[in-house]
Design a protein around this nucleic acid. Structure first.
Ligand SMILES: NC(=O)c1ccc[n+]([C@@H]2O[C@H](COP(=O)([O-])OP(=O)(O)OC[C@H]3O[C@@H](n4cnc5c(N)ncnc54)[C@H](O)[C@@H]3O)[C@@H](O)[C@H]2O)c1
Ligand SMILES: NC(=O)c1ccc[n+]([C@@H]2O[C@H](COP(=O)([O-])OP(=O)(O)OC[C@H]3O[C@@H](n4cnc5c(N)ncnc54)[C@H](O)[C@@H]3O)[C@@H](O)[C@H]2O)c1
Lengths: 220, 220
DNA sequence: CCGCATTCGTACTAATTTTCACAAATACCT
DNA sequence: AGGTATTTGTGAAAATTAGTACGAATGCGG
């Protein structure tokens, strides 16, 4: 008794969502450390880079197993590998972008998704003038092809950048096609059935949560 | 004794940051309700729209005062007014955009900032080919003019969309000019001195925090 | 005008999240 | 090899955040 399967198993169920949300940051720092040639890193050093306490890092990791060595720290390459596995980043996810407007184009030409585990393999727009256009090597498809392409390309993640009023409808269609995670840029929070994940990116809310702390008056 | 200044004062100090971060969402819903002609709203109704418990809404609001009426609810227009005042959204904040690339252009032409309290009044880029260009009615300035423009236009908020490696430098310059809040789009977290606020927008981290829950395997 | 249905504001309780602190393990120095 | 300095992993404590539940108002219907 005592030493059971915890260390070789991911224990997916019982890690709090806040903890899971911090893991990608650990992955990012570790990736950088690996590139810089670091072989080991302590929770202390990691904490300094991330501005969190070393205890929090150790506690977070302990939800998933035991990855460190006392007196030494963590093997950068090994911990990175394990975290990617836990997050499902050991191979690539195919992603669709829906809405090829100003923002959608910036997203399509952003090179930062690929090194971090995401391949943008399809783009959709409802505007016939946009359909057929090629951006960053990808030809924009029409919405009619959505179901077919999502299935054939095994797309389970979508980035949605369409006008607010079309967002819920687009998300509904995507979910019906089998998409299980949505990154939404419109200033609403689309409703989805249980089991589908949504993250919203909303610069206005971010700005408004800062002005509270700007004690002097805004310009008038 | 007993009934003191709490209700007519904002009590800025003691509201937890999580609570402050929810207020902009309340503002957004209330704005919509006002447009729809609603006069009063209960914490119950608000909670349904926001997917939070009515108790949380009442608790959150109670950090700042007493805005409701028993048996009736909250006056939409009155509560909205008060929340905007608390968040410093009663008048406009002038904002600068630094980095007029693909993303910066999308931001400059996004009409969603103005109705919510932010005027983009300046844009800066280091590329001489971009300086002088006019986007969405705004002419791009060179970085030499940064200090002068930030002062003269009373800019205290900046949106930064420059390449990762230039981000920390740009943020440092902005802070030196007097900017006190930064919305950063690069995949790092710029370090700033105490008193300056930063929010990061990082779609990759958002995606990576969802893949954990996508139990079936990514494409390989 | 009275009773009943609402709904707030908040004291209290519960749950969650973070931090502390220490035994156990490891590395390193002499 | 022995001693000292590190550093992990984790129970326990502390702090934060969320939820319950109820008294006190308020409005409404008859
Ligand atoms: N531009 C920004 O910086 C910015 C910032 C914050 C939020 N947003 C939000 O992002 C979304 C897109 O913004 P944008 O500036 O790119 O707008 P845009 O108008 O430039 O582009 C929207 C695109 O979506 C397409 N579209 C419309 N309905 C569609 C549908 N049903 N299915 C597929 N495609 C459809 C349009 O043809 C167009 O190409 C909006 O919701 C906006 O509020 C944008
Ligand atoms: N495009 C996206 O969808 C996207 C998504 C996520 C993150 N980002 C991040 O946003 C930032 C901008 O992305 P982009 O796609 O617009 O890049 P981009 O290369 O198209 O634009 C960057 C702009 O910044 C300017 N610039 C460079 N150094 C500068 C400096 N020191 N001061 C002022 N301006 C400077 C450049 O001249 C250029 O115009 C990057 O950090 C990128 O990682 C972009």
């Amino acid at each position: 008794m005592a030493l059971d399967s915890a260390s070789q198993n991911q224990r997916r169920s019982d890690a709090p969502e806040v903890v899971v949300a911090r893991l990608p940051q650990y992955v990012r720092i570790l990736t950088r450390l690996l590139q810089e040639g670091a072989e080991v890193v302590s929770s202390q050093q990691l904490g300094e880079k991330l501005q969190v306490t070393p205890a929090q890092i150790r506690k977070d990791l302990s939800y998933f197993g035991r990855f460190g060595k006392q007196g030494r720290g963590y093997s950068v390459i090994h911990l990175l590998e394990r975290l990617k596995l836990i997050l499902g980043l050991n191979s690539f996810w195919n992603v669709a972008v829906v809405g090829v407007g100003r923002l959608g184009r910036a997203i399509l030409s952003y090179p930062g998704f690929t090194p971090d585990g995401f391949h943008i393999v399809a783009a959709f727009d409802s505007n016939p003038d946009v359909v057929g256009e090629t951006i960053a090597g990808l030809t924009v498809s029409s919405l009619e092809e959505l179901d077919e392409v999502v299935s054939s390309k095994k797309i389970s993640i979508a980035i949605v950048a369409v006008p607010t009023e079309h967002t819920q409808g687009v998300v509904d269609r995507l979910v019906a096609c089998g998409v299980r995670a949505v990154l939404n840029y419109a200033p609403i929070s689309p409703q989805v059935r249980e089991g589908v994940r949504v993250r919203n990116i909303d610069p206005v809310l971010s700005l408004q949560s800062m002005t509270y702390y700007l004690t002097d008056h805004p310009v008038d």
